[in-house]
Structures are given as C-alpha cells and as structure tokens.
Amino acid sequence: MTGARITVHPILEFKEGRKVRFTFDGQVLEGYEGEPIAAALHAAGVRVLGESPKLKRPRGFFCAIGNCSSCLMTVDGRPNVRVCTEKLREGMRVETQAGKGVLLAND
C-alpha cells in the first residue's frame, strides 16, 4: 500500500526518526527508527504478520499496545516478539513465525 504515511494532517505533526532498513522474511524494507515494527510493516503494505498455530489462519495486529498477542513474530531469531510495541532498529531481521516458536537457550 503506497501512501500509508500521513504527510499532512490538520492537527498533528509527525517527527519521523532516522530512516532505517530492515528485512521482512528476507525482503529489504524501510521504516523509521524507533517506530513499532508493526507500523513500519503496515506502512510498507504488510498486514499479515503471522498465522494461527493450529488452523493456520492469517494474523495481523489487533490492539497495537501490547495487550493481545495477535502480532507475534520472530525478530533477530527471537520468537514471540510483540511487534506492535517492539521498536524498529537498523538491520533488524523480522520473520513470520511458524507455530509457537522455540525459546532460545539463554533467553
């Protein structure tokens, strides 16, 4: 979806962070540093963030404030990250998570 970013608004002004690059399932995308990963993905047209563990139904975000766990993804190898609150950083590796994810040994 192009043009998802709001550029003019009657009340608000958006101070965007530094432009950074990250990958989504291997594909290179751009977003602003410090915004939630989900916002960057959404602005880049990505709405499906994962699938339900049993019925494999597509999942997107729902609450966007870290309460509902609808948005779990694997980030830099770490599963079950709520991308609606996790902040975007340069070079992050964001991946669709299959199943419930495996906890890392030292986590």
Partner: peptide, 25 residues
C-alpha cells in the same frame, strides 16, 4: 473477525495519531 484488517479502535488511533500511518484506505 480474526482477519488482518479487523482492528480495535484504539489500535487504529495509535497507528494513525501516534505513528502517522493510515490503517487502510
């Protein structure tokens, strides 16, 4: 009701008013 694109009103507000991203068209 579980399809991506069904969002809570608060989520829509957060995305659009805090991060400047439109939830859809």
């Amino acid at each position: 009701n579980d399809l991506p694109g069904v969002y809570g009103a608060g989520a829509v507000q957060t995305l659009m008013n805090v991060y400047g991203v439109r939830p859809g068209k």
